[in-house]
């Protein structure tokens, strides 16, 4: 029920409570209410739940989180040969999650 899917706003019509947008979910375009995200513009990403954008996706924060997670890997692999070995094994089997 609380599923929220990130999508890119590609068109906006209407204002205030009937502010509506077309949102692109990797090729599938759906009409979504943008009434609760008044600052969102075309090209921005939103998280959509039952036809409503409930929040703007903070892209800078997303990239920062990913960079941190990936960087952590690199540093750890460099510092710890056992970790590097485990990572190689994981890459070889590739079925972690």
């Amino acid at each position: 029920m609380c599923l929220g899917i990130p999508g890119k706003v590609i068109e906006i019509t209407g204002e205030d409570f009937v502010r509506t947008g077309k949102v692109d979910f990797d090729g599938i375009v759906k009409e979504v209410s943008l009434a609760y995200v008044p600052d969102v513009g075309i090209g921005d990403y939103v998280i959509v739940h039952v036809g409503f954008a409930i929040t703007q996706l903070d892209e800078a924060s997303a990239h920062e989180t990913l960079a941190l997670l990936r960087q952590l890997d690199v540093v750890r692999e460099e510092l710890d040969p056992e970790v590097a070995l485990a990572a190689q094994r994981a890459r070889a089997t590739g079925n972690a999650t």
Partner: peptide
Amino acid sequence: RDPEVALR
């Protein structure tokens, strides 16, 4: 969903 990062 990156499995390598998940394992780490």
